[in-house]
């Protein structure tokens, strides 16, 4: 796995797309910093971008990369190496190169603006963490979809739909259900709904940093415990990790049974 990882990482890190992705974040972060002249404020503006964009890019690159390297995977399959190592190697190669572009793209401008000594440092670190988690999750989901669907167009559409669903539609349905059942206590329900969506989990991680003041304005005991203590952060983070582990495991399981 390490060998495959090494080479696919080297391949990707040299690709034009990695550079574009890196530049995108560097330019966005740089211009936000320039316009607001305050790291704290730039972090807040970036949050919305990250919630939408990291999953989208991860999904697209995941599907594209898998389909593009199908023939190469076949070549590798003929080598004395485990199937799962090939896929895992490629998965980590892509995920880590994307994460690196993302982290460096944001990190370099923020370093120049002195994020290290700023009080917004924790917020920024959580932002990077959330974006990276999303990348890991959505590349895995994209791989699962691509492995399952030989048809590229079908795979692509499905992956985009999954992204759209989790990024936007899910929250719409969620909000609707909160209104339909508004007579019931919904604290627990809404926390459970949140853990079922990796984008919501990352959002909560960031929210816990930026909006504690507002979150503490709520009376529900469950909410208070979740938002008011470190439980919220720990629970969200571990659920977020589950959202990486489970798709990766199912990707491995699919790969073991697949005919190439």
């Amino acid at each position: 796995m390490i060998k495959i990882f090494k080479y696919s990482f080297f391949d990707l890190i040299r690709s034009r797309w990695s550079l574009i992705y890196f530049l995108f974040f560097a330019v966005t972060a740089g211009s936000l910093l320039y316009l607001s002249n305050d790291v704290g404020r730039a972090v807040v503006s970036l949050m919305n971008i990250i919630i939408i964009l990291c999953p989208l890019i991860a999904t697209m690159f995941g599907v594209m990369y898998y389909y593009n390297s199908r023939e190469f995977i076949e070549l590798l399959l003929a080598q004395p190496i485990r199937r799962e190592s090939i896929l895992l190697g490629q998965y980590f190669g892509l995920t880590i190169s994307l994460t690196l572009s993302f982290v460096l793209g944001l990190g370099i401008p923020f370093l120049f603006y002195g994020i290290l000594g700023s009080i917004a440092l924790t917020n920024f670190v959580v932002l990077l963490l959330a974006g990276s988690l999303l990348t890991f999750t959505f590349v895995a989901l994209a791989f699962v979809i691509a492995v399952k669907n030989e048809n590229k167009i079908k795979g692509f559409s499905l992956a985009i739909f999954v992204w759209l669903f989790l990024a936007v539609l899910y929250d719409g349905l969620f909000l609707l259900s909160l209104f339909i059942f508004e007579d019931y206590p919904l604290d627990k329900f809404s926390l459970i709904m949140t853990t079922l969506n990796p984008i919501d989990l990352s959002r909560i991680l960031i929210m816990l940093q930026l909006d504690v003041s507002a979150l503490l304005g709520y009376t529900g005991a469950v909410f208070n415990k979740f938002f008011g203590t470190s439980i919220g952060f720990i629970v969200s983070l571990s659920c977020g990790l589950f959202w990486v582990i489970i798709p990766v495991l199912s990707m491995v399981r699919l790969a073991k049974r697949k005919d190439f």
Binding site: Y7, L12, S15, N68, F72
Partner: peptide
Amino acid sequence: PQIARFPEN
């Protein structure tokens, strides 16, 4: 294999 494709970079 029939078709030759490799990591492009």
